[in-house]
Design a protein around this nucleic acid. Structure first.
Length: 252
DNA sequence: AACAAGGACAACCGCCTTCCG
DNA sequence: TCGGAAGGCGGTTGTCCTTGT
């Protein structure tokens, strides 16, 4: 499957990886570890660019990589996180142990998105479609759709929270929310939260993550969440990082 | 059996961010 | 502080596979 092998202008091979290439990459990483991807092809004897090696390793060769059919639990997680975060596949992948962001992205685009569409739900906003013209206008304004997604999620979280929060936590939330109308200050979805200093908005995202994954203690590490690099590249399993020393999360 | 259309998915590309001298 | 290199991410492409006619 995939593309026919070919050589680019620099003589580097492109297209599908062969078994031999996989073995070379595996053997090299096994002996030297990964990192410095730009140097790796030369050292490993591969006629590939570093980026191609990195992609191959991350998506198919790294240890414990999970492939194949997604469980219903995994699907539910993807739905929930996509509603909350949008197309932030790397972050979504970090909550699906040993799944790659590329695989999740493909799965979403080829199956889950279509499933929502067939159910009459807009995959962008995760809400039931209105009439066709309305839908088109929303789709054409992606930032509006994202804003709406965020607003709906905030509403959902508000509803959920009233059921699940203990009194201490709830009072903390309420103190903040008294000053934040639902959907307010969600302009950050037009950009990344790392560029936005709106603490209230960031807090609302963290709340959503906290509800989905209370064991990770996002709300106890809000500052760290805002630093995406600490989440990005943290492959697969946060189980090992439950103690939430986020600064020590290793990434490639 | 032959063909067409759509699905599935590996891999590439461009852009952005981060790092480092 | 600046600029180039490298890393990382999400969008998109290209080709094989599957299904329908």
């Amino acid at each position: 499957m995939g593309r026919s092998p070919c050589l680019d202008k620099d003589g580097l091979k492109k297209g599908p990886w062969t078994h031999d290439e996989d073995q070379k990459l595996l053997a090299y990483v096994d002996e030297h570890g990964y990192g410095s991807w730009s140097d790796l092809p030369l050292r490993a004897g591969l006629q590939r660019c570093g980026r191609s090696c990195r992609l191959r390793w991350i998506n198919y060769l790294r240890p414990n990589i999970k492939r194949g059919k997604f469980s219903s639990e995994e699907e539910r997680t993807i739905f929930q996180l996509h509603a909350l975060l949008g197309n932030r596949w790397s972050i979504i992948a970090s909550h699906l142990p040993n799944r790659s962001d590329n695989e999740i992205k493909n799965y979403w685009n080829t199956r889950l998105k279509k499933r929502l569409i067939n159910m009459g739900i807009d995959p962008m906003t995760h809400q039931p479609k209105r009439d066709g013209s309305n839908y088109k206008s929303i789709a054409s304004l992606s930032h509006m759709a994202e804003w709406e997604t965020a607003r709906l999620e905030a509403e959902a979280r508000l509803n959920t929270r009233t059921k699940i929060c203990d009194s201490t936590t709830r009072s903390t939330f309420n103190n903040i929310e008294e000053n934040v109308e639902v959907g307010e200050d969600l302009c950050i979805f037009e950009d990344t939260i790392t560029k936005d200093n709106d603490i209230q908005t960031e807090f609302s995202i963290i709340e959503g993550l906290d509800e989905l994954f209370p064991e990770y203690g996002y709300s106890q590490n809000p500052g760290n969440y805002s630093s995406e690099v600490q989440m990005d590249g943290c492959f697969g399993n946060f189980e090992d990082n439950k103690s939430t020393n986020w600064n020590n999360i290793a990434h490639l």
